[in-house]
């Protein structure tokens, strides 16, 4: 049995004016334990919506999500979340305070949690920054605090929403390598959202490509059967996977752009 099962999941948002927006419809996906799954899609297609439902932040409108066979009931410490922006960090706590937050909430003794927090801060390359507050750190450093905070809590599953989007290319490559290493060493199951095809191929065991919104679901899944050496942008087999994924997503980008333009035209029409 797959660790995570999404069966025919839909999400309808009700707008302030009372009209409904179907973000996701009949979305089905199984993620195996220990698998690194990348969810790829155009901007606004519903990636964050899916992640929020798996995290338990948003209830599903229809369908069901199960973890180890049990329907989820809200967020829990078995699923650590790395958010898209940096507004989830606690500005009044130091980097160390942020990273040990989950351990503190769960009653781990101070010495032990500090040791663990320091270990993970070092792991994400923030050695010696323990006492700095988020406001004193760069965007990339803040993102790394988020990652360390989640890792220190040692969840079975990582839910990551475009965690590296704001990083410079060099740091991103470092972080990708590090994440990959940690996840294969600890056997974590990962749902990783990105809109970057390269990133998905570097990291994933499988890549799920979403349709453009609204009422989005998976268009298809690409298995990434590459060795470490083959996960180089210049490698033939990398390029082959890239083509395959690109083929799938290309039309969706066009549709998405068209819909955005139509939407803008419609709202212009309405307002005139």
């Amino acid at each position: 049995m797959a660790l995570v099962q999404l069966a025919q999941v839909s999400k309808v948002y009700r707008s302030l004016k009372g009209s409904d927006y179907v973000a996701v419809r009949d979305f089905s996906l199984d993620i195996e334990a220990g698998e690194f799954f990348c969810l790829l899609g155009t901007s606004g297609c519903g990636k964050t919506t899916v992640l929020n439902m798996v995290a338990g932040f948003e209830p599903v409108s229809a369908g069901q999500i199960r973890i180890s066979g049990h329907p989820i009931a809200g967020p829990a410490a078995d699923r650590g979340v790395v958010f898209q922006g940096d507004d989830s960090l606690y500005g009044w706590l130091s980097a160390l305070g942020n990273v040990e937050f989950g351990l503190r909430m769960r009653g781990i003794p101070r010495a032990e949690r500090e040791k663990k927090a320091r270990h993970y801060l070092e792991l994400v390359g923030l050695r010696g920054q323990d006492h700095k507050h988020p406001a004193e750190l760069s965007g990339g450093m803040k993102q790394r605090i988020q990652i360390a905070r989640v890792l220190a809590n040692e969840p079975d599953m990582l839910l990551m929403d475009e965690p590296f989007a704001a990083l410079d290319a060099h740091t991103r490559a470092d972080m990708q390598r590090e994440l990959k290493r940690i996840c294969s060493a600890t056997g974590k199951t990962v749902l990783f959202i990105t809109h970057d095809i390269d990133e998905a191929i570097i990291l994933a065991d499988r890549i799920g490509v979403m349709h453009a919104g609204p009422a989005s679901k998976l268009k298809g899944i690409v298995k990434v059967d590459l060795s470490e050496a083959e996960r180089e942008r210049t490698h033939d087999r990398f390029v082959a996977v890239y083509r395959q994924v690109h083929e799938m997503i290309r039309d969706e980008v066009a549709i998405s752009l068209e819909r955005t333009r139509d939407g803008a035209a419609n709202s212009r029409k309405r307002s005139h």
Partner: peptide
């Protein structure tokens, strides 16, 4: 208080009282 601060706390294992005293209150200071 940014909703993601509360969400992060919940998925790090904090209960409602902990969220009030360790997240909502300091964020409101």
């Amino acid at each position: 208080v940014a909703p993601n601060k509360i969400r992060a706390a919940r998925s790090l294992g904090a209960g409602p009282f902990q969220i009030f005293f360790f997240v909502a209150l300091p964020a409101t200071v």
